[in-house]
C-alpha cells in the first residue's frame, strides 16, 4: 500500500477496513500524523493560494507521487471475462489464441474504466459560509471539489458539476473533453449568494437529469434532518448511481467552540439565540453526535460512502477515500461478477 509508506501515515488497515470514515477518527489520524510527519498539505497554506486550479494541482500532484507506485494503478483496460461467442457478436472480439488452444470461440470482455462519470454536487448555502479558521467551509468545499475534479480528469473520467443553495444554481453535464475542467473551475470560482439549504430538490433534479450510472459526490455540511435525505438518496441509488457523501464541518461546530456567551445568529434564518457555550456544550455535542450517527447509519444502510471532514483536515484524505472507494468498488464488482459467474455455470 503506497499510502501506508512513511510519507503516508494512514494505517494500512484503514483502506480496507470500511468504506466509511468518521471525523473523529480522521482528526485523530491527522493529529497523530502531524506529530510524526509534515508531509500532509497544510490547509491554511493551501487556502492562501488564490488560483483554484493551482490549489487542486498542488494537492493532486503530491498525491500522485505515491499513487504511481500503486500496483492497482495503470489498468485502464482491464480484463473482465470470457464469454462464448454467439451470433451477432463482433468477430473482432474473438480471442484467437484461446480458440487455438481450445478450438472454441470465446469473446474477451474488458472493463472500461475511462468511461466513468462523476458528478460533484456542492452545497453553497449560507451555512457553508461559516468558518472559525482563516477560511470558511465553503472555500474548503470548493477546493475539495476542484481537487476531485482535477484528479478525476487526470484519470480521464468525465466530470460534471452541480451547485445548489435553496435550489440548483449551476449544472454542468459530466464530460471528458478539453475545457471541461476549466469550466468547472470557473463555476467553482463564482461567488454564491445562497441563503437556505434544500438538499432534496437538487438530488431529485440530478436523478432526473443523469440517466447513466455515475459516481455522485455530495459535498455539504448536511445541517438538515437526516430523514429528509433518505428519499432523494434512495431515488439516486435506485438509478444505480454510486454516491459519496462528504460532510464538511468546522472544528467549532463539532465542539461548539464559540467563545463566551453570546448572541448566536443563524446564518441561514437570521434567528438569534442567546447561548452560553459552557452550559449548552454537552447538550449540543450530544445532539450533534446523534445527528451524525443518524446520517452515517442511513448511509451505511443504503450502501453510500460517508466521509466527514473538518476544515482543518487535509484534502488528500478525500482523494484517498475516493481512491479507496474505487478499489473497493472494483473488488466488490469483481466478487459480484465471480459469484455471478459461479452461479451462472461454467464458461
Amino acid at each position: 500500500m503506497p499510502l501506508g509508506s512513511p510519507s503516508n501515515p494512514v494505517p494500512k488497515n484503514s483502506a480496507s477496513a470500511t468504506s466509511t470514515s468518521s471525523t473523529s477518527e480522521r482528526s485523530r489520524v491527522v493529529v497523530d500524523g502531524r506529530s510524526q510527519s509534515d508531509s500532509w498539505i497544510d490547509m491554511s497554506a493551501l487556502m492562501r493560494i488564490k488560483d483554484m486550479p493551482l490549489r487542486a494541482k498542488s494537492v493532486v500532484d503530491g498525491f500522485h507521487n505515491g499513487l504511481h507506485r500503486s500496483p492497482l494503478h495503470g489498468f485502464s483496460v482491464e480484463f473482465s471475462e470470457y464469454r462464448p461467442f454467439s451470433v451477432g457478436d463482433d468477430p473482432r472480439t474473438i480471442d484467437w489464441k484461446l480458440f487455438a488452444r481450445s478450438d472454441r470461440f470465446y469473446v474477451k470482455k474488458f472493463e472500461d474504466e475511462t468511461n466513468r462519470r462523476c458528478y460533484l454536487v456542492i452545497d453553497q448555502s449560507k451555512s457553508m459560509n461559516y468558518g472559525s479558521v482563516s477560511y470558511t467551509k465553503m472555500e474548503y468545499a470548493r477546493t475539495l471539489a476542484a481537487t476531485l475534479a482535477y484528479y478525476l480528469t487526470l484519470q480521464r473520467d468525465a466530470v460534471g458539476l452541480l451547485t445548489f443553495e435553496a435550489a440548483v444554481t449551476e449544472f454542468l453535464t459530466a464530460r471528458f473533453r478539453t475545457g471541461q475542467l476549466k469550466r468547472i473551475m470557473s463555476l467553482l470560482a463564482k461567488q454564491p449568494n445562497g441563503t437556505a439549504t434544500d438538499l432534496q430538490q437538487p438530488l431529485f433534479h440530478l436523478a432526473e437529469m443523469v440517466r447513466q450510472r455515475s459516481l455522485i459526490i455530495v459535498i455539504s455540511d448536511f445541517l438538515v434532518p437526516a430523514a429528509t435525505l433518505e428519499q432523494p438518496l434512495s431515488f439516486l441509488r435506485a438509478r444505480n448511481h454510486e454516491i459519496m457523501l462528504m460532510r464538511v464541518v468546522d472544528p467549532a461546530e463539532v465542539a461548539l467552540q464559540v467563545g463566551d456567551a453570546a448572541m448566536l445568529v443563524d446564518l441561514e434564518s437570521g434567528r438569534e439565540l442567546h447561548v452560553d457555550p459552557e452550559a449548552a456544550r454537552i447538550s449540543y455535542q450530544a445532539k450533534y453526535a446523534e445527528h451524525e450517527n443518524a446520517l452515517r447509519e442511513m448511509a451505511g444502510r443504503m450502501g453510500i460512502s460517508w466521509t466527514s471532514l473538518t476544515t482543518t483536515d487535509s484534502i488528500e484524505f478525500a482523494l484517498f477515500d475516493l481512491l479507496h472507494r474505487q478499489q473497493n468498488g472494483q473488488k466488490e464488482a469483481g466478487r459480484t461478477r465471480g459469484a455471478e459467474q459461479v452461479v451462472g455455470g461454467k464458461p
Binding site: E253, A262, M263, L264, V265, D266, E268, R271, H274, K287
Partner: peptide, 18 residues
C-alpha cells in the same frame, strides 16, 4: 446579557437559554 453577536452556521442543535 451578551452584547456580542456571533454568526453561527446553524442553531438546530441549540436550545434557548435565558
Amino acid at each position: 446579557r451578551p452584547k456580542l453577536r456571533r454568526e453561527f452556521s446553524s442553531l438546530m442543535f441549540l436550545d434557548a437559554v435565558p
